[in-house]
Every structure is written in structure tokens, then in C-alpha cells.
Amino acid sequence: MPEIRWDWLQRHADDIQIMTVQHLEITGLSMALALAVALPVAVAVRNRRVPFAVAAGVADVLYTIPSLALFALLLPYTDIGRTPAVIGLAAYALSMIVRNTVVGLRGVPAVVRDAAVGQGLTPRQVLVRVELPLALPAIMTGVRLATVSTVGIATVAAFVGGGGLGELIWDKGIQREMFLTPILAGTVLTTALAIALDALLAGAQWLLTPWARRGRT
């Protein structure tokens, strides 16, 4: 095991910090875009078999495209930089969010829906006040899975000039005759980010679903 060059890390601490923030920004923007697309799609197809199969199928196909190729394919339509990275990462997250959201929405007991409609909630109120809150645990499962995988794949964003910790691993490490220190630092930071974000989301879920932790004793 070669020595880690702590002095190099110290000298580049500012750069590393900027890349870490960039990485978080890319991840956050990607998840926001993915949610903005996936939630309405999931809501629209939740009660229909064929449209759901089509939406889930398209999302699955996107998920199977190799990440390098996907970013490259986007380049003719966008400039180099953050945009192709965010679009590509959001595309990857769609499948997990759409599928989990639909599972959650379909898991709302029919009797709860019937009672809600019977009390005089409009279809829109049933969706917003009943179905979405009750689907929240499943939606959060999808968001957490997608976030963790996005943090990892986001390292590839460096190839389309998106910045982030991929830059640390690729530009500073691999391209400099496998200079190990930045490669290791980038890897450790990426993993730490993934774990931290997952824990953060788990905490948010805990706060948002007080009913789920109170059962009959």
C-alpha cells in the first residue's frame, strides 16, 4: 500500500471542498428533476395497467444504458457541463422512484380510499391528503435508493465536464499515472456522502411519518 500524500490533500483542501459541494449540487438537482418527472408520471399511471407498464418499461430501459454512453449521447443536445450530467443522472433515478411510488399508491387500502371519498373528499383531495401521505414510506424508499446510486454514478459526470468528486478521481488521479491519493480521497468522500444522505433521508422519513412508528402495544 503506497503512502497517502497527506500534504497533497492539505494543499488541495479548497479544491476538494468545491468538488464535494459540486457533487452534492449535482446529486440534489438530479433528484429534484427525477422527482419532478417521476411523481406526476407515477400518479398518472397508478391505476392503469398498460400505461404503468409503458412508463416503467421506458424508465427501466433508461436505467440499463451504460452511464458513459448516456452522457455522451446527451452531448449533441446540451453543452458540456452540469446540464448533461443532471439530465443523465435524473434519467437513471426515474425507474426506482416511479416503481416505488406506484407500489406505495397502490398499497393504500381500498377501504381507506372508500371512507375518504364517502366523507366528501374530491379525487384531488384523496390524492393529496390520503394517497400521497400514505405512499410516503414507499416513495422515500425509492428516493433513498436512487440517491445512493446517484451519488455513485455522479462521479462519471466528470467526463462531460460536470465537475464533482469524479474530477478528483479522474483528472487528478487516474490521468496522472494513477496518482492514488486523490483516487482514494474521492472514493472515500463519495461513499461518505452516500451514507450521510441516506441517513439524512431516513431521518426525514422518520419525522414525516409519525403514525408509522406508533402501533398498538
Partner: peptide, 21 residues
């Protein structure tokens, strides 16, 4: 229909309380 139902009490066998409230 939704307006009408607010003026009609509705009770069912499985109750159907909203579990998150």
C-alpha cells in the same frame, strides 16, 4: 357528489380511518 357526501355521515364495517392522521 363530494359536496353531497359532506352532508351525509358515512360509517363502514372496516371503519377506514385515515391511518396517518
Amino acid at each position: 357528489a363530494a359536496r353531497l357526501r359532506r352532508e351525509i355521515g358515512y360509517v363502514i364495517q372496516q371503519v377506514g380511518l385515515l391511518p396517518h392522521l
